[in-house]
């Protein structure tokens, strides 16, 4: 694992504010009273057993999931049912998925320039230059003309990160970005995420990579059955977990 990025003082500007968010799938109560405040530049790792609602929680932030109670504000704009408002917020929130979700009918470069051209209305040339810069940053500029189907999983995930960065988001959400990858490829994706962290990006990352959490996160959040059970700095979280549930989870994930 690379060196921990130098701690930067967090600004007191709030990027994400979740207040009493509840969500039901039919009768099933998936999210129970989620309260979370994320400062600008803060890096948060969310962990927990599968089905604990951690993915659902971060997918509420860019409204890929609806919620029935509570309020969420992103960079001061409150999420509403207004489609235009949702689209405005989504422009500022990049998301990286477990299964990459690259557009298979477009080349890597086109994947990266599509949203800047059609949503941000950038001229094609400018969008392509920016895309190449980001592809260089994730270290695969030479793959720009290939189709996603021709790349390895790790490369695809790095393209997905570059695609999100091309929109110049203020926040990046990672939804288990390494869970679908072979062990050999996890490292390259995590390294990309660490460089992103070094640049001061506001990040929320759902992951089971506890090494990543230890080195990069300002705060680790543990969720179970739709609730935030515990949140703390990584040092405290890993050495002195407060609840029994957290202790059980950590013992399972660290000694398997």
């Amino acid at each position: 694992m690379p060196e921990s990025p130098a701690p930067k003082p967090l600004s007191d500007q709030t990027m994400i504010q979740m207040d009493g968010v509840h969500k039901w799938y039919g009768a099933f109560h998936v999210l129970k009273d989620i309260n979370l405040t994320v400062q600008k530049g803060e890096r948060i790792v969310v962990c927990g057993p599968s089905g604990s609602g951690k993915s659902t929680a971060i997918r509420c932030i860019n409204r890929l999931e609806e919620y029935q109670r509570g309020r969420i504000a992103v960079d001061g704009q409150e999420l509403s049912n207004d489609v235009k408002q949702i689209e405005r917020i989504r422009r500022e929130v990049g998301m990286v998925f477990q299964h990459f979700n690259l557009f298979p009918h477009l080349t890597v470069l086109e994947n990266c320039t599509l949203a800047p051209i059609w949503v941000r209305k950038l001229p094609r040339k400018e969008a392509e230059e920016a895309a190449m810069r980001y592809l260089e940053r994730v270290k695969i500029p030479e793959q720009a003309r290939k189709y996603p189907g021709q790349l390895s999983g790790g490369q695809q995930q790095r393209v997905a990160i570059a695609r999100s960065l091309c929109m110049n988001p203020k926040i990046m959400l990672f939804d288990e970005p390494t869970s679908a990858l072979d062990p050999e490829m996890i490292k390259e994706v995590l390294e990309t995420m660490v460089t992103l962290a070094e640049d001061g990006m506001t990040m929320i990352c759902v992951t089971h990579e506890m090494g990543f959490a230890k080195t990069v996160a300002h705060r680790v959040i543990f969720m179970d059955s739709g609730e935030i059970i515990e949140q703390n700095s990584p040092e405290e979280f890993f050495t002195h977990p407060k609840s029994d549930r957290t202790r059980l989870f950590l013992s399972q994930i660290l000694h398997h």
């Binding site: 689209e87 989504r90 979700n101 949503v119 999100s164």
Partner: peptide, 16 residues
Amino acid sequence: KGQFEAAAALGLGFWK
């Protein structure tokens, strides 16, 4: 479904 989600997450509207 991931294709719809990825497109939505980039801020593309329905028709785009």
